[in-house]
Write a protein that binds this DNA or RNA. Sequence first.
DNA 1: GACCTGCTGCGGGTTG
Length: 948
Amino acid sequence: MTARPRTSLRAQLARPRPAPASATVESRANKLVSMPANKSVVTAASEMNDPLTDSASAPAIDPAGNPVAGAQAGPEANPPINPAAETDVSSSAKVPAGSVANASVKSSARSATNLSAQVPARRGANPVAKSTGPSSTQAKAWFAARGWKVFPFQRDVWQAAMAGQSGLLHASTGAGKTYAVWFAALQRAALHKRPRVGLKVLWLTPMRALAADTLRALQESATDLLPAWQIEARTGDTGSAQRARQNKRLPDTLVTTPESLTLMLSKADAVAQFAQLDMVIIDEWHELMGNKRGVQTQLALARLRHWNPGLVVWGLSATLGNLVQAREALMPDGVAVEGHVAKDIVVDTLIPDHPSRFPWGGHLGLQMLPRVVEEIERHATTLVFTNTRSQAELWYQNMLDARPDWAGLIALHHGSLDKQVRDWVELGLKNGQLKAVICTSSLDLGVDFLPVQRVLQIGSAKGIARLLQRAGRSGHAPGRVSRLTLVPTQSMELLEAAGARQAVAARDIEARPVPYKPLDVLVQHMVTIALGGGFRSAELLAEVRTAWSYRDLTEEEWQWALDFIARGGQTLAVYPEYRRVLPDDEGVYRVPDAAIGRRHRMGIGTIVSDSSLQVKYVSGGRLGSVEESFISRLKQGDHFLFAGRILEFVRLHEMTAYVRRATGTRGAVPRWQGGRMPMSSELAHAALEQLRLATIDGAESLGPEMQAIAPLLATQQKWSALPTPDTTVIETMHSREGRHLFMFPFAGRSVHVGLASLIAWRVARVTPVTFSIAVNDYGFELLAAQELDWTALLDVGHGAKAGLFGTDNLLEDVLASLNATELSQRRFREIARIAGLIFQGFPGQPKSARQLQASSALFFSVFRQHDAGNLLLTQAQREVLEQELELTRLRATLEELQARHISFHQTKRATPFGFALMVERFREKLSTEKLSDRVARMVRELEKAAGP
DNA sequence: GACCTGCTGCGGGTTG
């Protein structure tokens, strides 16, 4: 104990055994840091009489671990928290977060008085003025009344938070994370000595629906434990009256979204509104951390911490591959706590009745319809996940055809359906009135549907994290088993299912990389802060650098961003609307113009959606939305399948497609343009591992999935070979279409796109040739009109494969091999929107996709011509390379390919693995003869951008 | 002989 914590004299006097107690807590807290979920921590915690301990005979010890003076046996007599005790909390703001000793001193002082005497006073008093936390007894009783068990991790969280520590709590869904932090938040309320008005607990969720749900859950417990505590939500759909009230004064607890929080930071009086803030909880952090919404959250937290360095921050997350990064992105220092609930997760597979007749390619999987219907029949409520909206539509329609009696009992749910429809479906699920819902990832998280008994996943789950997430939609409560059944749509997915089961058992979960220095988000944030009271350059730079994603932000980058918002950068200086901030005489940057401020607030957020058209009945009634490009292909009178109905397209008017019900003939299914979801490395490796095992002992000796595809694997092995972690299989074949080359690196489709283009380009440098490219998650195909000597090109048998698989000049070659400019331009649209260059139009009067596309394309070309150093351009290129082409993974794959043995085969016809590629419809023409200076310039630019 | 891919999330309430 070198540095004594600052405490008031009164608090020191009230402390029964000062020094040793705080030392103990400090070391215990350190244990938490170094060994999350360590048994010693749990043991230590269970000896204490904290509010979540279920042992009634534990010695009386206050929350920080100090023995309570004059303690009698039993928690009733010794509530650890006394709201009215005299403690010095004013010093807490000056002490850095994590200063355990200081917190323990305060809490030991609190425990000197008995709570019971305070209860009547609290009831009668001004509810806001007396903000007191619930006692341990109350909290325990509340749990017990629901028949809930208190888990050790919940105590760990509570203790750490009471000691003023921040942390990340990770556990599978349904493990009881919410109450662990919520009780901590309520108990911390007791730390507030003075009558206080305003926001103390901020609860962030990634979804409005989740905010509403959380609000209900928090209110339910708080009404019992802390009746005076005000809890409200604030999201985009908060009514104007409530919004106005909140603008004046925030409630004690606010449940909100990152976007709404940022909007609040853009108000001039933000400092005052957040002055009392004590604790922030970020729910479902794993959903945010990997994208720009997470970065925006980081920046908002940096701001809140700047105002209150002692802020206690807790993240709640599912288990994932990079937990340390997940925590670091949220807080400079803090503990990691693992939820201890032994959550049983069962993953199994519906094996087709006749595996030998199961298709080798395709994705829809309607062959499995009878089996799926059977499963639904046998259970009360089933969620059926599909990978795309059109797949959900088709499955729904076909299921109704198969079981007309299920009309009204099954429903459809995806992101393009109208909110009212979705709400109705969600309600039906909650009430247990629906037998099955066919959905996309729209039901991945959010509302907990307790009645859900079964979860089916049609087609590849693409990743282990997603699989676990979806499994968790069933048995959503501590102690209940979650079960997910994979429904393959073609033979290769049986292999994937086998790998997935193994990876789930090993909990080999994907990492979610945190974005690095996205300047578009920074630029938006700077304008937000200029609105929210203004900033000084050096101060805000220091603050921004405390956000993990900007820890390496250079002075030059900062100056560029500042110049960009102050002057419009190099190219936009003549347009006043891009001079968004202006320093006053004292060097404080503010937004000088109210109209600019208003426009900025309307553009806050990082989600950029493609513009879509409303779909409405001619007679009135909204159905949802489809993309402009789909509708533009339809002629009047055309039929299409949407929202589970067959509709006739009538006319297009003011961004709305009017339709009427049609009967009879099937129509087209809207194809929404969405993200491509490559299979994760984890899942790919698990699948390859299954193949390796199959080559050793035969597929028959493995699980049911592998047994089912044993004949297919035998065929593959007979005609060619099985790819394994040590062997790359390459096949060539002649057909009427031309000369095929198949390769199976098992690296996921986006890497295969890059790899196929790269190899095509490198070959074409030697021999002029045009390829058609097809890819899937398992491999790729190069199709050429002429014969190529692949054995020579690949140098098979000599091990010197670095030529085609080399990583030298990788960046240049990748950029040259793909139309990187076009990819960057598409990316740039999103960046321009986030950075505030493009105004989306006023609510209710959105601009059309064409208008928006035109203006972003204009900025893109203007910057390229006149402002090549524009860092937003560089960012667009970097995002394409990292996110769309997965350059890092591509490089790793090339290195793997160099190390692997090549098994080369000339086959007479397509092998089972090759066939799946042939039926992929994606064909990308790569005309090497036409590659021109445009590409060369792109390379030069990137070299400059990438630096030495 | 075999083929119907492409998710999700939020926010703003003026002006011409």
